[in-house]
Design a protein around this nucleic acid. Structure first.
Ligand SMILES: [Mn+2]
Ligand SMILES: [Mn+2]
Ligand SMILES: [Mn+2]
Ligand SMILES: [Mn+2]
Lengths: 218, 218
DNA sequence: CTTTATTTTTAGGCTTAACTAAAAATAAAA
DNA sequence: TTTTATTTTTAGTTAAGCCTAAAAATAAAG
């Protein structure tokens, strides 16, 4: 129905709309897709013709309902495949993203219906990201960045903002995964760094780390 | 490493080489891929530059060792995915080919290694076709077309030559699947039609059917 | 309110993988 | 061995999706 390139643009716009509301700028799309702004203009004009985005020259793009639904479905597929790779094929959570980037474009409604069932209709992917339902509805959960919680508070890790292999491997080294309890022992006003407790270990983390870990406060 | 189009051409040439030995003609490739001969010429010239086929003008194409290996690997992936779809997702054997046509192009050595293990390293796909090993080696098994066996002989169904949904659904209706025992009760010299016994049922089959069923004689 | 900087779009090109139409080579028939 | 038919290749287009360079619009400074 839609090309690989079209699906990737819709997905990128969808993610950017969730990061900051309103229209998404040409440059923002270009940056997130590692492509040139001129290429983005070409594509959003094509998507506008197909009524997948609303586009006004120099004003950026916004997904239509139809565009949103398609994007959410691609994301649903991506995340279901990530669950498959981790739960069934025993991949590690830092290895699955690239493969899911390919698998998310496989066209077959029936395949996804059956895959979802096979996996037990999971609600979250291996990185803690919610899986949209078959209608493209994404239920938002209560979660905060670790950087937002205060000294002496406890939280349980429910997801990662960044899911680069580097970051995930850092978390492994520190024994942090989805479900891990974290206590904030100290918070440095100056640079946002923290001292946290994980299990019996206490250690230092940078602001960068704290800003990329989602927690639910206990 | 190789584009989707390149992989599909290599696969088609591989299959054609097994149907009749020697060079594969431009027209034969075009027909099997539902494309035009001029497009085929373009592509085999490109494949020849990449040393995946040997090509002499007006003489057709032949896979090099490298070309054969790549083709066999695509076929390996196709068949492993078909096993996955049938064994794990409970698809029916007439529904999996189109989806496997897409999945066979997913790029990840590790994925295939793990998928193969997950499936218990199967030797055959749901249509009875052998799955090449990781080095691209395809072990040939003893099998004949049902049309080649004689009256009063018995065989067990080990595969299908055609695997169109129409044919597979016909076989279902007749209760024939991989492993089914078939006895040839009569064979019409005139048109190659047969009377066969499957379970307690005896019925007529056309030459077309007999020429598309592989059996091992008992 | 100009001037300058940034963002975005247009114009023109490139590559891949198709296509049609015409030319060239090979195979088959007379 | 000509003539005819078939197969294959070449030449020239097209569409998608990218690119660079230049122009136009918008935003930020002075
Ligand atoms: Mn991912
Ligand atoms: Mn994920
Ligand atoms: Mn198949
Ligand atoms: Mn098969």
């Amino acid at each position: 129905m839609f090309t690989l390139a079209e699906e990737n643009y819709l997905k990128a716009i969808f993610h950017l709309e969730h990061e900051s509301s309103g229209e998404v700028s040409t440059n923002a799309i270009a940056e997130s897709m590692e492509t040139k702004p001129s290429s983005v203009t070409d594509m959003i004009q094509k998507l506008a013709e197909k009524k997948l985005v609303v586009y006004k020259r120099y004003k950026g793009a916004q997904l239509t309902e139809k565009g949103k639904k398609i994007a959410a479905n691609v994301i649903r597929k991506h995340r279901l495949w990530e669950v498959f790779l981790v739960e069934k094929l025993n991949f590690h959570w830092d290895e699955v993203h690239e493969i899911a980037e390919q698998l998310e474009h496989i066209q077959s409604e029936e395949l996804i219906t059956r895959l979802d069932k096979f996996l037990g209709s999971p609600d979250f992917d291996p990185h803690g990201d919610p899986i949209p339902d078959k209608h493209g509805v994404l239920k938002r959960t209560e979660k905060k960045l670790l950087s937002e919680i205060e000294k002496t508070q406890k939280g349980v890790c429910v997801g990662v903002k960044e899911s680069s292999a580097d970051f995930l491997q850092y978390l492994d080294k520190k024994k942090i995964s989805i479900g891990t309890k974290i206590t904030v022992l100290g918070k440095e006003f100056f640079d946002g760094s923290m001292i946290i407790q994980v299990g019996n270990e206490q250690f230092f983390i940078s602001k960068t780390v704290a800003e990329n870990l989602f927690v639910q406060t206990l």
